[in-house]
Design a binder for these strands. Structure first.
Lengths: 158, 158
DNA sequence: TCTGAAATAGACCTCGG
DNA sequence: CCGAGGTCTATTTCAGA
């Protein structure tokens, strides 16, 4: 893996592609002031370097009936590797869990879960605690999603 | 907007496209057992119905130097609409904030922020509290991202 | 060596059956 | 509803700087 140096044109391309990956090469080229060929090569390099990992379709949460977001803060008192592996496997097998972090501080793990309603959340909750022994689980419901973007800020480029 | 009924083939298509939107129609068609034309029509309909909202490029967090994730829990004691509008505008203008929810319970708002390091987070923090009067701000750092997916679970389809 | 224009290949999308 | 062909786009090649 080479030292990926990204200049301002790469940055512009990423900015555009993070918002809409369907744009045509010629179109992008015009926006960044490059020939189509050159632009195509840039995008190719960004993919090969692993800067762009992949391209995905985003789906409307309400339209697939998972409008409810729940954050689940988990604390444990069993800090063994065995416990962790089991917990991790449990969580990864639950498709309703879309994010899963190991945290510093008070809470040990934080999960973001998407479900249709509270009843469905209860099912997920049961699956979670069935897998492993948890010390404390605290669920917070999101009332409204005010911002959600997959576009990362590009002001800190290497 | 028509009542979007999604059958098991739509579900399969969404499942595939949520993971990789670059797959070719003929390829998808083979996987779901449809003719290319029919498959193309399905995907088209999913887009027109707004089930698929758009297609984006996902970028490697480490490669663009925002490897650190911070969750910011915000509490306020100024529950006016004017305050909210100001806060919302402040938050939306900060590209480091990638998620922003209004919560029930103890915490009023939850933000997910991505930055290169703690110093950079401090800058974001300052921008946050500069915009509006906040009662309490509590930051938790993620040590490790164990799971992150943009793919929603499709077991609750309408 | 690098650029960009033009050829090629291949996928999308439309249309007739 | 299906497949075949026309059209458009990505990709490669190649001549020139």
């Amino acid at each position: 893996m080479s030292k990926t140096k990204l200049d301002s044109i790469d940055r512009k391309l990423l900015d555009l592609l993070q918002v809409d990956a369907e744009r045509q090469v010629a179109d992008l080229a015009a926006d960044v002031g490059l020939s189509a060929t050159q632009c195509w090569r840039r995008v190719q390099r960004l993919k090969e370097a692993g800067v762009i990992t992949r391209q995905v379709a985003l789906v409307d949460r309400a339209k697939v009936n998972v409008a409810v977001t729940v954050f689940v803060a988990v604390r444990t008192n069993t800090h063994t590797e065995q416990w962790f592996n089991r917990f991790r496997a449990t969580v990864e097998a639950i498709p309703e869990v879309v994010e899963f972090y190991r945290m510093s501080g008070d809470v040990d793990y934080l999960l973001r879960v998407v479900v249709p309603d509270i009843a469905a959340y209860d099912q997920v909750y049961k699956r979670l605690i069935a897998g492993t022994q948890l010390f404390d689980v605290s669920s917070s419901f999101a009332m409204e999603e005010l911002k959600f973007t997959t576009a990362l800020p590009l002001s800190y480029l290497p």
